[in-house]
Design a protein around this nucleic acid. Structure first.
Length: 573
DNA sequence: TAACAGAGTAAA
DNA sequence: CCAGTTTACTCTGTTA
């Protein structure tokens, strides 16, 4: 039902107010509510709400036809941020950010059908509302959508150019379908014992939305300095390469580099092999790496950051709760979970700074995956090393009489079931030696192999494995290979530890007027007021370590004004 | 010219 | 017929 006059609006207000679980969707003129230095933030053009009996569309910014007066948005400011209502949505994080851009605060209680879908079946071919409803036999197909997309040239962000009358059927369809999907998925969640997890994940969505909203502050002057420096090095590295090759070789073209070096792949590990061997080819390979580094540090970090930041020099990524099969978060636009670790070339972390009056705090779990693997596998030999605070790589290397690099690789790889083939490629040693190292390793720590087999057999037999929280990873579909079950158990398990910790930590950090900015799998980045650091640091450590695994989860904390320049903190001092 | 696959590289 | 896993992004080079 189209609500585009004050009279109609007044008549539906009582219906909205009597609904405690409205389903909400927004139509917008784009995907980015924050805007960039060169583009304005996108805005809501209308809001649709299903109150359980009827669906309404409230148009505000259509370029033609009759809109509701903007004053009516005032009602939604309180209504849509009401902590006493539960808002149903599909990828509601997106709608919340859009609503926020119109001054509507985030509502803490949400029920997101997309998150429910991912919990019930993380193997879905996609997580689009209409496609999902088609697959589950809900609604009357994507008829409304296809008609509408036809009208606006197949671009949803141009829906504002249409009359509200044309958009209403589509917009109302979305909220009706969302409610139907929620009604379908809730019993499935209950049946799989996932309902409580879902409520938690909805809250996690609320927290991560706040992280996106806050964003990370950039030191623009330093970016420009680093860009200029990178450009100089690029030119030097390229001219050196051109001299060597005798023509203008492109270091990013694997074809050209392969021809230049007489190899079949120009990937980094192949180039490293050539460098190991020494000689003239080694110099060539070194020059390619040098040039690639100075080119990519700019094209992959500085330049995109300058383009993507908002007018306050703030960078807002997207934290995706359904981006992975294992239950980890994924991060995009930009991917701040994959910012290069600091080197002479990649000084990228330096350009992320704390806002005035705040300090950045990084808290990361030490050896989280290995600890969880020990816990699951009852691998007591390794567990004892960890409990005693030993360097597990060095100790392993000494005990087995293998290089430390090999011990380190196996320690990381064993969680994923590494074999001789992969180890020989990574360490650039022959396959026989790799197999010997593995045999020694599994002789010393026999339980990892046992867990690998057990988890795989369990997944084969039951088609599903359960993480320590009760979250499930399903293997009862094609292309869900059970040899990955242990990896998923550990990776997903750490993700659940992180989710639990962040959910517990959020109220504490908010009370101190601090902010969480980012989650990087086993690490969080926060921004804490300078005068609250003394309280915040021990609190963060205590909350994050508050689990009952053996060996226990421990957290290393560092703090500073730049991400690239942090000092370690210890509460002993 | 746009779309796509493949190679390469960043993180945990 | 997968054999360390989970991602996101940029570039090259070919194809529609």
């Amino acid at each position: 039902m189209l609500i585009n006059t004050q009279e109609k609006f007044n008549s539906v207000i009582p219906k909205l107010l009597s609904c405690v679980d409205p389903c909400v969707d927004t139509e917008t003129n784009g995907l980015n509510s924050f805007g960039t230095t060169s583009t304005q933030g996108h805005r809501i053009i209308g809001i649709s709400i299903d109150d359980g009996t009827e669906a309404y569309y409230f148009p505000f910014r259509h370029q033609i036809g009759v809109n509701l007066p903007m004053e009516c948005l005032e009602f939604f400011r309180t209504y849509l941020s009401d902590p006493n209502r539960v808002f149903g949505g599909f990828n509601y994080k997106f709608d919340q950010l859009m609503l926020y851009a119109d001054g509507i605060p985030f509502a803490p209680n949400i029920e997101d059908a997309m998150l429910a879908l991912h919990l019930v079946n993380e193997n879905e071919e996609n997580f689009k509302l209409k496609d999902t409803c088609d697959r589950y036999g809900i609604g009357k197909g994507s008829l409304e959508e296809s008609i509408l997309l036809e009208k606006c040239g197949h671009k949803k962000d141009r829906m504002g150019e249409l009359d509200p009358t044309d958009v209403e059927p589509y917009a109302c369809d979305d909220v009706r379908l969302t409610r139907m999907l929620l009604d379908l998925l809730k019993p499935a969640l209950v049946h799989q014992n996932l309902y409580y997890i879902w409520k938690q994940v909805n809250y996690y969505s609320y927290i991560t939305t706040q992280m996106e909203r806050r964003g990370l502050c950039l030191d623009v002057d330093l970016i420009k300095t680093y860009q200029a420096e990178a450009k100089e090095h690029q030119e030097a590295a390229l001219s050196k390469l051109y001299d060597m090759a005798g023509y203008k070789i492109n270091p990013n073209s694997s074809k050209q580099v392969c021809a230049f070096l007489g190899v079949k792949s120009s990937a980094r590990d192949i180039l490293d092999t050539i460098i190991d061997a020494g000689g003239e080819a080694a110099e060539k390979a070194q020059a390619v790496i040098e040039a690639r580094g100075w080119l990519s540090v700019d094209t992959r970090y500085y330049t995109p950051y300058m383009k993507m930041m908002d007018i306050n020099n703030t960078l807002h990524c997207s934290l995706n709760l359904i981006g992975t099969i294992s239950g980890r978060l994924s991060c995009s636009n930009p991917n701040l979970q994959a910012v290069a670790r600091p080197t002479n070339v990649f000084k990228v972390k330096d350009v992320f700074i704390a806002r005035a009056g705040y300090t950045l705090v990084s808290a990361d779990y030490s050896q989280a995956e290995m600890r969880l693997a020990c816990y699951y596998a009852h691998e007591d030999t390794m567990a004892e090393l960890i409990r005693n605070g030993e360097d597990i790589h060095s100790t392993t290397a000494e005990a087995l009489d293998i290089p430390r690099s090999a011990a380190k690789r196996i320690n990381f790889g064993v969680i994923y079931g590494i074999g001789a083939e992969a180890l020989h490629k990574q360490l650039r040693i022959d396959k026989k030696t790799a197999q010997q190292y593995l045999n020694k390793y599994h002789g010393m720590y026999p339980q990892f192999r046992v867990l690998l087999g057990q988890t795989e057999r369990y997944a084969d037999q039951y088609g599903v494995i359960e993480l320590w929280t009760g979250r499930r990873r399903h293997f009862n579909v094609q292309h869900a290979y059970t040899h990955k079950a242990m990896s998923n158990l550990i990776q997903g398990g750490v993700a659940e530890i992180m989710r639990t910790a962040i959910s517990r930590l959020y109220p504490a950090i908010s009370n101190l007027h601090g902010y969480m900015l980012l989650q990087i799998h086993d690490q969080i980045i926060c921004e804490i007021p300078d005068d609250k650091l003394d309280i915040a640091l021990p609190t963060i450590k205590a909350v994050m370590e508050d689990f009952n695994f053996d060996p226990r989860m421990t957290v290393d904390i560092s703090y500073g004004k730049r991400w690239g320049d942090m000092q370690n903190w210890s509460d002993e001092i």
